[in-house]
Design a binder for these strands. Sequence first.
DNA 1: TATTTTAGAGCAAACGATTGCGTAAATAAA
DNA 2: TTTATTTACGCAATCGTTTGCTCTAAAATA
Lengths: 344, 344
Amino acid sequence: MSDQNMNPMMKKKLTISDIADALGVSKTTVSRSLSGKGRIGIETKERVLEYIKEHDYKPNVMAKGLAQSKTYNICVVYPTDCATNELPFFQKCLIGIVQRAAKEQYDILIAMVSNTDISQLKRIVENHKVDGAIILRTLTEDYSVRFLNQNGIPFVTVGSTTEEGVVQVDNDNYAACRALTMILLSEGMKKIALIGGNMQHVVTQNRSQGFQEAFEKWGKKMDERLIYLGMEELIDIENSVDDAIKKQAECIIAMDDDICKKILDKLKRDQLEVPQSIKVASFYYSSELNNYSPSITSLKFDVPELGTAACNTLFAILNGKEVQQKTILGYEVVLKDSTSSRIA
Amino acid sequence: MSDQNMNPMMKKKLTISDIADALGVSKTTVSRSLSGKGRIGIETKERVLEYIKEHDYKPNVMAKGLAQSKTYNICVVYPTDCATNELPFFQKCLIGIVQRAAKEQYDILIAMVSNTDISQLKRIVENHKVDGAIILRTLTEDYSVRFLNQNGIPFVTVGSTTEEGVVQVDNDNYAACRALTMILLSEGMKKIALIGGNMQHVVTQNRSQGFQEAFEKWGKKMDERLIYLGMEELIDIENSVDDAIKKQAECIIAMDDDICKKILDKLKRDQLEVPQSIKVASFYYSSELNNYSPSITSLKFDVPELGTAACNTLFAILNGKEVQQKTILGYEVVLKDSTSSRIA
DNA sequence: TATTTTAGAGCAAACGATTGCGTAAATAAA
DNA sequence: TTTATTTACGCAATCGTTTGCTCTAAAATA
């Protein structure tokens, strides 16, 4: 670093050698006191630790990394081509990841990729800047997944993927949607509509499968015309609502909060009361649905926990442990007024 | 790296020494061929470069960093305690930063901080994992700003801050809001309402100042009761709309897309037509307002450009160049149907 | 031709850690 | 008391680059 860059406020960085010299021990001893590895006398160790605490020593991660062939960094693959309503999910997930990683002294490097352009990810990986990766969202035929797989980089995906042999962490979308549907069926509803977004997302498929499975289990015939997938624009959603109403649906399940909000707005405009005229349930990520009246029945997932779990799994892989290929996290069905039959 | 972690698919990493040996030159020569620094024969250089291209050599950034006292990483300080409607802004900004940084071979390390907890940021900085930082959002009395300032870390904020001596990059919120207001005034409107969110954000204040300034310039008296700031909950916004209508406002300016959407929904429910009954204008970040009918008059900023500019400035600082303390980016007034007086 | 300049390339010391191996002293076992 | 074992710690190589300095041969100058 040249002098002109050197901030005068910045104290000269303390290194392990400095400490060793000051204490009259070897660098080895200092290193061992810090890491706890190797044999070391208890009192020497404490002497070093005390000195370090007093003089506020912080290890140089680059040097450490070089010596250990570790970067202490994880790459989070973040999609740029995503809908606004997905952002809260990603942010929450990221929080979980960051916090879990910090416990192992790891930090998060962001690779922003689109479905067609993964150059960022490539650069980061090829320059050896990370030890592993977590993919926040996968598509069918996902370039990031393929790239990491082919290059033998340890990685975990959040959400399911159809790619072979990929370690993944996911909510139990299938079971959750099935459970919700079963409850609705058991309350006597017969015509239930399902409105969902991007069909390329595996999650859309899983939920819709759970939905169908519930009907089978319940022994009722499902009306396929009440399943509306790929509804990404406002107008599509509103048309679906119109159509569902025309077909006398008693309840609509929204696949995410954003869709749900749009459905509720539409119903309000049409002066259809929830739950008296029609019932509504949703999947839930953000806190926005909290304020709605009536309160909304929803499937709740712990999104930061999803990040945490992905991180746990990745660390397990990095430490050479065997991991199960798929980790499934639980869900919670929160029954509220929007599906109640008691409100008249 | 232990053997059990070693993926068999992974080719052994090529180092500068390997190349030097293979070509019968010294490591110095290889290094110089790559960096372009130092004296080197043109044909030797080309021989090295060709070998490197063929054998797909990628430098080890940790070693490089260690030798140069650089990390090739920038910390982006990302707020965890932010509203959902801010997320698109952050994401776009991040895209700008990531792409600009990549051009200098830099990557982005994420520090997630809340207003009260900046431990992530501390860890990253103290462990020497970054060369500088960009703060995505600042509050009055911002802990992150203070911390970086006190530790002499080079950093830039996106958005304005009141803190002394901080290098910042911002949209010209003041001028933009003033310009929009002037246009509305010049179209003959007299009662214009302004609805905005979190008052802790400097941006809210800037815009509201521009609004007021426009009235002064125009020589009209402004109705202070039509300024609604700190409206963060849906109910607050709806009440503001009611109140503005009661006070016979001719136009409402929304301070962000989210507020605008809520206003439009509310007006639709109240069966008030835009622009016939009341006019609406907004600040614009996400693409969601695109699909509205009528089309919405808005102030448009290039958000990724904001990130790019912040990055540019940070690199300038890192290279020891003098930078101006405040960089102000332009805006665009997009006039559409929602404020048109010609639609009857 | 003798001398200076310069271009091209290499040596070896950093950068700041980790770690396998060696050794002396202390302790335990024979 | 002798031998074996354990404990505490240091030496020096290593990780993969960069870079100041040195050296040699060729080119330029006198």
